[in-house]
Nucleic acid binder design. Structure first.
Lengths: 195, 195
DNA sequence: TGTACATCAGTGAACGCGCGTTCACTGATGTAC
DNA sequence: TGTACATCAGTGAACGCGCGTTCACTGATGTAC
């Protein structure tokens, strides 16, 4: 058994992490396998030792974000049996619609970076995407006071967070972009705080 | 002067319309020039009689939506000097977040269909996109009663409309998709109606 | 402890295909006389 | 009115390039003895 047992697994993880960042920044089609492998300090040909195809890697990359951030959201939403309390939703909103998140092309949420890619991707990728959204919605839903409309509000908050960031991201005028982000932030907090 | 004077112009307009629909449905990269020209009942080679490049056509296609729907929005927002009244915003919201609009892959708003493409496109395309957004925001802003927060609310409404539709579009589960759409619709109307 | 061996992650050249773009040519149509 | 001509929108074959994918080979490393 040449190479340490976890050698291949580590290499695989490194490729996924590199790919996640590159896909987030440039989208699925503009990232080449050569780019990914070079950035991982490997050569093109070795790619197929680790993945069946470029799309299989894409699936893994989207899932890897889900496993990280998405699981974190779910844990925070339900870990202590009771609801997470309104602070959780407020923190989530503040972080999601923050200037930092807007500037973080590498680490941003894939729901912002890749909506078009996902809408046209295969069902497995879409499934991972849906899990990410439901994790976010669950956190909101459990955290709201207004139990009667909590689901409707939670879904709207998700739409507002994602929509605000997407619009801000597409605007070439960064002043307007920030205005959109802050307007959405204000509105989202107002919805979360309403009785 | 062979061919009628407006012959070439009509052909050009036909190509743009075909391209707008195809780009809306499949995104910039998945549409080939051959597809566009075939669908326009022409052959590949003639393309460059009309456009400098594929991207130039893309610009024209985004603009063509802006010239149509965007101009309509702007006209409705400001045509009778005074503000358009709250009904205008309500109508806009109802139409934008309608089940029909969700199902209309060909005619949908490019802000829903093409956000990733646009975010990575050149400044001219992004400019056309920004004009579309500002037209929408102007309509909302002029139509709201709450003058103190009207701009903040108008920007949030745009984020909610676009975000709600994008999320719904990416979800493979159409039941959840409709739930998101309706939640956003309810929330948007509530914001528009608040004092 | 030291050496030969087997394994397999990684290499890099090559293939094949599709697509954007170019270009020499065609032929339908309006105009000149 | 009819005919020859000039124009130019449209044709279709070909080019060139890049990228996903394949494959025969290499060489570093853990294991057997």
């Amino acid at each position: 058994m040449p190479y340490a047992k976890d050698h291949k697994q580590k290499t695989r993880a490194r490729i996924i992490e590199v790919a996640r960042v590159l896909f987030n920044r440039h989208g699925f089609q503009d990232v080449t396998i050569n780019m990914i492998m070079s950035e991982s300090n490997l050569t093109r040909g070795g790619f197929y030792n680790h993945f069946e195809s470029k799309e299989a890697l894409y699936r893994s990359a989207v899932s890897s974000f889900l496993m990280g951030r998405g699981a974190q959201w779910r844990a925070e939403a339900g870990v202590d049996t009771g609801n997470p309390g309104p602070d959780m939703a407020r923190q989530m909103i503040d972080g999601y619609l923050s200037a930092e998140h807007l500037g973080d092309l590498d680490g941003q949420c894939p729901m912002i970076a890749l909506p078009s890619d996902i809408a046209r991707a295969n069902p497995q990728v879409q499934g991972a995407y849906q899990e990410l959204l439901t994790a976010m919605v669950s956190l909101f839903e459990g955290s709201l006071d207004d139990t009667e409309h909590s689901r409707q509000k939670a879904l709207s908050l998700a739409a507002l967070c994602v929509g605000g960031m997407i619009l801000a991201r597409t605007l070439p005028n960064s002043e307007l972009a920030n205005e959109v982000r802050e307007a959405a932030l204000t509105q989202a907090q107002s919805i979360a705080n309403a009785a």
